[in-house]
Every structure is written in structure tokens, then in C-alpha cells.
């Protein structure tokens, strides 16, 4: 359903005010994911995960330089098609809670999202109520302003906004940051159930541990490159079936496993140098 081929993204920066250089943020990134699955994209901060999400949605600044191709349902995803699909077929659950408008009540915001996905006003309002209910947010939460919600509730509101539009591709950008374990599992299982409904869910996270139980496939990203895409089942034992050293290291570095990263990372750095 989503196929990304040799995606390279460069953004300008200005070392001095008269100079403009381009920094590479995504480097020949490729992976593909099928409908009805949950595809996790895992990487450290600065690996380019959020930029990947913005690239797929077409939310990059105008001065970005992009090469490579994205295909959505086997058709090329260009700027015009992205504009058409945004909200209707593709939805983004943003990373920051600041994405909620502090001056608008919750249900109204959700209904705007539904309205933008093509529902009429009245239908959008009902869809918003249903979406909020679906994520265990009652009428009181619907009437509340974002600052009156807890972190977990605000996350669920963002998820409800993506859900209200009935999009078939949902990109969740770090949806579990700052949540306690109970809230986190709630959000993750909500994403899993979206995948069960036949949607493609791209889960962007830095935490491999939380992604593995619910993901079908995992793409490991490092410095803008896709290091490896493997089924979630490959992350077992000492990770022998993983092809790349980086993915193996990442897996073994988890506290539940060997917890021994340093050796391999040093070796890897030498080989890179």
C-alpha cells in the first residue's frame, strides 16, 4: 500500500547569512508496507523519523530538496495527490501536544478534522463524538480545552482526530512520549486495532521495546538511512536472523537482553571509519 523508493531529503541551512548549504536528512531511504499491518519505524533522535512522516504527508517547507519516489496504492504520491489525500486517506498523529489548538474545545477540534476529511458539519460533529467515545473520552472531555486534559487524554484526542477522518494510512509520530505504562499500552493497542481494521499504521518511535509487541514489520533508521527492514519476529534470541550489525546491536542493547552494546558499537565505528 505504501512503497518508498530511494527517498532522499535535503534541507537548507545557513552557516552564514549569505551562504546556503543543504544538509541530508533522509538518505536513499526505501521500504514498503502493506495495508492491515503495523509498520514500526525505529531510530534514535535525529535519525529523520519525523521528517519521513512529514515527507509522506507532504508537509515539508517549500525550500526542501527531495528526490526518490513514494507510492501510495501503487500510484505515485506527488504534491498534488498528497494535497488531495491528506485528511481523507492519510492522517498524521503529531508528536507534540502543542498541535492541539489551545483556544478550541476538544470535540470541536475533532469535528473540524472530520469536516476536513469531507464530512458535512452535522455528520462531522457526530463522527467526532463517536471518535472521542471510541477512545474513552466522555462529554466532559469533549467540552474541555486542551490545557484541561491530561497528557494521556490529549494523546487520545490526537488519535481520535486521525481516526475521525476514516483515513486508511495513519502515521503516528512518537505517540507514547511522556505517558505512563498504562496510558502507553492503551495508545499502542488502539493503534494495533486500527491496523486490524485494515488500515496501514506507521508507528514512529525511538523505543524498539514498545514497538515490537504490536508491530508486524520494523524498519530501523540511522542517520537518515534505512538500516534494515525486518519482521518483528526476527527480534528474538540474540537477533541472529537480523542482517545488519546496527539492528543486532540495538536489539542486544535492550536491558531485557544482553545489555551489551559497547563492544559491537566500537567495532562498527572502526569499520565505518
Amino acid at each position: 500500500m505504501l512503497r518508498i523508493e530511494q527517498l532522499t531529503l535535503e534541507l537548507p541551512y545557513y552557516p552564514r547569512w549569505w551562504q546556503r548549504r543543504f544538509a541530508t536528512h533522509l538518505d536513499q531511504l526505501s521500504f514498503s508496507a502493506a495495508a492491515g499491518s503495523l509498520h514500526a519505524v525505529v531510530g534514535a533522535s535525529g535519525a529523520g523519523k519525523s521528517l519521513l512522516a512529514h515527507t509522506i504527508m507532504g508537509l515539508l517547507p517549500a525550500n526542501a530538496r527531495l528526490s526518490g519516489q513514494c507510492f501510495y496504492q501503487e500510484t505515485l504520491l506527488d504534491a498534488k495527490r498528497q494535497r488531495h489525500l491528506r485528511g481523507r486517506h492519510m492522517a498524521l498523529i503529531p508528536q507534540s501536544l502543542n498541535a492541539l489548538d489551545p483556544l478550541v474545545r476538544t470535540q470541536r477540534q475533532v469535528s473540524w478534522a472530520a469536516n476536513r476529511s469531507g464530512l458535512a458539519h452535522k455528520a462531522a460533529w457526530q463522527a467526532a463524538g463517536q471518535a472521542l467515545n471510541h477512545y474513552q473520552l466522555d462529554d466532559r472531555a469533549g467540552r474541555a480545552y486542551p490545557h484541561e486534559l491530561s497528557g494521556g487524554m490529549a494523546r487520545r484526542v490526537l488519535t481520535a482526530m486521525a481516526h475521525a477522518g476514516q483515513a486508511s494510512l495513519i502515521i503516528a509520530d512518537e505517540p507514547t512520549v511522556g505517558l505512563d505504562p498504562v496510558q502507553r499500552d492503551r495508545v499502542l493497542s488502539a493503534l494495533r486495532s486500527l491496523a486490524h481494521q485494515g488500515k496501514l499504521v506507521i508507528l514512529i518511535t525511538h523505543d524498539l521495546r514498545h514497538a515490537l509487541p504490536i508491530a508486524d514489520h520494523v524498519t530501523i533508521m540511522h542517520q537518515g538511512r534505512s538500516v534494515e527492514t525486518a519482521p518483528a519476529s526476527a527480534f528474538t534470541g540474540m537477533g541472529e536472523t537480523l542482517k545488519s550489525a546496527y539492528a543486532q546491536t540495538l536489539w542486544q542493547a535492550l536491558p531485557d537482553n544482553a545489555f551489551s552494546a559497547s563492544e559491537i558499537i566500537h567495532k562498527k565505528e572502526e569499520s565505518v571509519a
Binding site: H54, L59, S96, L103, W112, S117
Partner: peptide, 22 residues
């Protein structure tokens, strides 16, 4: 330039829509 607008763009809103509602 805020995340509110980016989020609205991601929902498929036009500039006019964002200007009017937010």
C-alpha cells in the same frame, strides 16, 4: 508556522480554512 497549522494541514485543511478557524 506553528504545530497547530502543520497539524491542520495534515488534516487536509486549506490556508483559508486555517485562517478562518484558528
Amino acid at each position: 508556522r506553528s504545530e497547530i497549522a502543520t497539524h491542520a494541514f495534515a488534516q487536509g485543511a486549506s490556508r483559508l480554512d486555517i485562517a478562518w478557524r484558528h
